[in-house]
Design a protein around this nucleic acid. Structure first.
Lengths: 344, 344
DNA sequence: GGATTTTCCGGGATCGATAGTGTAAATATA
DNA sequence: TATATTTACACTATCGATCCCGGAAAATCC
């Protein structure tokens, strides 16, 4: 007979008290007697009352929700960050909306608009490969809504917090590791040049070569979107063009695995003919044969720190805290794909 | 000087027209002149107006949002379903809220409550391993909010749509495949007995044995939460207890891989000593050595169909459609882990 | 016991957008 | 020109919860 969901007014009507009192009772306000609270709680349970968060959020002008924008959830690194984010968010009473850009700027822009329309209290974002500026994110700065980058960030937004890893150092370590293992001609699979993280990984690559008196050869750097097929194609391109290499540093594991597959298929020995280092420590990198040397980014930690920072910014309401950058130091995980006998 | 975000009233005030007209103009209603629309659009852009979905949703009593509850996004199967879900949802103008239960009933209940409070228009759910009844989901049925199960469903909710695979048949095929390859003593790694899908996989396992005159030995069925460590432990348990096996049918890939790791470590040959079949076709199953024979569930298709069904139910508002069950037929993918020479 | 403070609750406005109805102006018709 | 009809917008209530203000009742004090 009553079709709609019960509201506080419904409860108020039945109990013959005012709806404000019901609201206060449900919120456990000190301005209501325990006796009244009990009555209200009982009746609410009886009617199956469920607070309408739309109304509540509208009135309070806050949603207790944070938006998370990532390229794709199927990447282990990102699902780890989400796990970290959710852990922190949950204990602080925040909800999380997860959105995937699928590496498309267009989608990312739509998502961001939508999060704004949904009035999230803050946003955590790791931008897509197509994102070369933060124009679509300016709204947050202008409206004083906290935003924290993690991992992939925009260089044109200086006044923004971020939690990143030292990509340059990580790449430097990876390449140095290959050099120590005796590699002289190291190729680098890089991502879209727009992205800071790939620029920095390239920078680390170059610096490592420089510091070890190896001349930088631009033909050895191949840019792509770093999917498995890209890694496969890049390896193929190098070998079929007769470009001689004895090591590969790939900017992610997936492309490294593509290379592994090509090399194995063409009877190249890993690591003895070509040693390989990936990036991100995807679970698959441990299982593949040979297992892949890679850089562990500890996504879970990054997620936790980014979310901590964001919530802190939300709760302090203080823009002065906004500009905080946390740089984590990733660690090299040595596995078979670089385990040569022929070290220095 | 103006701190808050602009509203339609703000636009109305500036243009000296009524806010309803602004609303209608922004919604491109035919009840407003093009001239007025142009003015409103221009001013909205100028002020950086962003519609407040909270208010809009409250007023319209619909959110254009569907809630998705899955055990964990890091599982490839689930991230594929999400991709399918998002594709369909997006083209129909729906937003998606993704939530992970992390296989905990407690979390699942909280998530569901929260989705209700957020007034989602419908919900897609694949329940956690701890979920043995649908009590926390009754609200949807009672309030006529569409709900569609996919993959993991509750048997105690007969009047609910679901998109599932024929787990029994898939298991039957998998075990028959092992038998054809010459296995006589096939172990089965099963999940929590509460879940329909694991019951059905066990059923298919038993039926296949029966149909091929192999006696069912309860000692060969090991239940766990099917994590990698569980598979490892299960394999260890079988071998150290001196239980002789020559085949394993695992109810998911992750546990199968645990077994692979244990067996390789203990110098058992796969597939000649023990042949293995997993379930789900996780990407890792293709990469591991030996590559894993498994069942492909085509998560993307399941997600698309489930979302289609849900949106149809939402838009028709018709409870008669609710009870629709779609059963997909999964396919066996043969790889090295079951590729024995010693077939029948 | 009267005055003052405290306690507890009611009334009404409000958040921002939208739907239904009302009304003046514009247009069409006679 | 007077009337009927359409057009284009204004007005107002509403969604459900919350917050500020104020008033009556109860408790406290002198």
């Amino acid at each position: 007979m009553k079709k709609g969901k019960p509201t506080i007014h419904e409860i108020a009507r039945v109990l013959n008290i005012n709806s404000s009192t019901v609201s206060r009772a449900l919120n456990n306000s000190s301005r209501v007697t325990q006796k009244t609270k009990d009555k209200v709680w009982a009746k609410a349970k009886e009617l199956g009352y469920q607070r309408n968060l739309l109304a509540s959020n509208l009135r309070r002008n806050q949603t207790n929700t944070i938006g998370v924008v990532i390229p794709r959830i199927s990447r282990h690194f990102f699902s780890s960050t989400i796990a970290g984010i959710e852990e922190v968010a949950f204990t602080s009473g925040f909800n999380v909306i997860i959105c995937q850009s699928l590496e498309e700027l267009d989608r990312e822009q739509r998502i961001v608009k939508n999060l704004i329309a949904n009035r999230v209290d803050g946003i955590l974002i790791s931008v897509s490969m197509e994102t070369d500026n933060g124009k679509h994110l300016e709204y947050f700065r202008d409206n004083n809504i906290p935003l924290v980058f993690f991992d992939r960030h925009c260089e044109d937004m200086p006044g923004t917090s971020k939690v990143i890893i030292d990509d340059c150092q990580a790449a430097y370590d990876a390449v140095t590791h290959l050099i120590r293992k005796g590699c002289k001609k190291i190729a680098h699979f890089s991502g879209p040049g727009k992205l800071e993280i790939y620029k920095n990984r390239l920078k680390g690559y170059k610096q490592a070569l420089l510091d070890h008196q190896i001349t930088y050869d631009p033909r050895l750097v191949l840019s792509s979107r770093l999917m498995e097929a890209d890694g496969y194609a890049s390896a193929e391109k190098l070998l079929t063009n007769g470009i001689d290499i004895d090591g590969i540093f790939a900017a992610n594991d997936v492309s490294a695995i593509g290379a592994v597959k090509y090399l194995k298929k063409n009877d190249k020995k890993i690591p003895d003919d070509v040693a390989i280092v990936g990036f991100s420590n995807e679970p698959i990198s441990e299982v593949i044969e040979p297992s892949l040397t890679t850089i562990d980014q500890s996504g879970f930690e990054i997620g936790k720190m980014a979310c901590d920072l964001l919530i802190h910014n939300i709760q302090s309401g203080d823009n002065l805290v906004h500009n905080k950058t946390i740089i984590l130091n990733p660690t090299l995980i040595e596995r078979e794909s670089s385990n040569r006998k022929t070290g220095i």
